[in-house]
Nucleic acid binder design. Structure first.
Lengths: 153, 153
DNA sequence: ATAAGTGCAAACGTTTTGCCCTAGC
DNA sequence: GCTAGGGCAAAACGTTTGCACTTAT
């Protein structure tokens, strides 16, 4: 998450961000590249990747790289969860906090607010620092701590 | 997930499964390949991939492919969650049910039982079928429903 | 005897990288 | 003018696949 961020404002980065914010489809890098190319025909895919990386490290956008091959990107950094279609890979938004999803019957309740998605299950993974890396870390301090209410990346 | 499963018993598949069950490190396909090769020097990486796919489709093992590049595999199919080290990618086990992780302070409580991992956050994604695919689905029925207590893959 | 499964290598899709050039500061 | 960032193409990465051969059934 929050890294150093870009040092110059380029047209390419501005357009990448604008277009990502302009869609609600959580596009992949390639999909966004095709959209952006309509305005900047000479932009390269590499530049799209570089800027998506830069923007998500700066916390301006969110990278959704939960399995299933390619990463998808979200211009909305407010806290919300996602549903991924197991057939086509399309990603939608869900307004469920982990608090809400606790307990039996939560999955059923969720379906009503998942934009028509039929919910089958979920994937959960915690993120942390293993003991070995933590030990190595104490040697050279100054790594950025958590600042986004429990959600990483 | 539970798919058809393999039709013949091969030495390669038996060794892949034995070795996966013999470690507690949630290896990647390549890591497991290197382990298995000690017993079957002629086995190919492709075969390891094919068998891991086959075994996880049969429900015999678990595939942990939540983002971060390569998939990792778990020979223990009992329900438990995982912690991924954000520095080195190593994966550990957590005994938390989603019920336990609900509510504030859960992350802090978790750290004590995550095998020494310092917990920073989590990643959550729901899986489902989008309206469009559901519509296409009604045409040709017979897709396997959920059967593993809310967890998919 | 049949065909599921193997070994090998080539191909795949996504992402990263090196290089030289462009343009923001 | 300095150098972060872009364009392009090549490489890297994890994974899948085509094909001829092997082997469990």
């Amino acid at each position: 998450m929050n890294g150093p961020g870009p040092r110059r404002n380029t047209r390419q980065r501005a357009v990448v961000l604008e277009e990502l914010r302009g869609v609600n489809t959580h596009p992949t890098a390639v999909e966004l590249y095709q959209i952006v190319r309509r305005r900047l025909p000479k932009i390269s895919l590499g530049t799209v990747y570089r800027n998506l990386e830069l923007l998500s490290r700066a916390g301006t956008i969110r990278k959704l790289d939960l399995g299933s091959g390619e990463a998808r990107f979200d211009g909305d950094t407010r806290r919300h969860e996602h549903v991924r279609c197991v057939r086509c890979g399309r990603v939608g938004d869900v307004d469920a906090s982990p608090e809400e999803m606790a307990g039996r019957g939560a999955l059923e309740r969720l379906s009503t607010q998942a934009g028509g998605y039929q919910i089958l299950g979920y994937r959960l993974e915690f993120l942390g620092v293993c003991p070995r890396c933590a030990a190595a870390e104490t040697t050279r301090p100054g790594c950025p701590p958590m600042d986004n209410q429990g959600k990483v990346e």
